[in-house]
């Protein structure tokens, strides 16, 4: 399984990627929404995108809307991973097309639980 990790913080990209790789994912990083769209446009379409909300150039919400506007990318599961925890923001992200929402700070178990809910937890996790 493949995951695109979109966050302007290199530290957070590294943390999220490391958790996902622990679950058996192949990951690619992107520093903002526009960079992530470039990855999709080059044909690397992931099963999952983990998306921060507040980023320069193109924020997470704009990215979600952009992905949802392209039928070829409908298979991508979009999971917001963000500090934005106001109810209104969560509703806005889900209405734009995000499937799940994880609030920072999180644990590896919290990400694992969300992946299990989404049916995106590979059955064989590497040792």
């Amino acid at each position: 399984m493949r995951a695109l990790v979109i966050d302007d913080s290199r530290a957070m990209r590294r943390i999220v990627a490391s958790i996902l790789e622990g679950f058996g994912y192949e990951t690619r990083p992107a520093g903002h929404g526009r960079e992530a769209l470039d990855v999709l446009e080059e044909g690397w379409v992931p099963d999952l995108a983990c998306i921060d909300w507040n980023m320069p150039v193109m924020d997470g919400l704009q990215f979600v809307s952009a992905v949802r506007a392209v039928p070829a990318w409908r298979s991508v599961t979009l999971m917001m991973v963000t500090t934005e925890s106001e109810h209104g923001q969560i509703v806005k992200a889900l209405a734009a097309g995000a499937h799940e929402y994880v609030i920072k700070p999180f644990t590896a178990d919290a990400i694992g639980d969300k992946l299990a809910l989404l049916g995106l937890l590979p059955t064989e996790v590497p040792a």
Binding site: D8, N54, M55, T83, E84, S85, E86, G88, I103, K104
Partner: peptide, 20 residues
């Protein structure tokens, strides 16, 4: 700072916007 800010924001009257 971003994560601390986001969590503090959630305790304050809203809606609020967090900067970069």
């Amino acid at each position: 700072a971003n994560i601390l800010g986001g969590n503090v924001k959630s305790l304050l009257p809203g809606p609020s916007v967090l900067g970069l």
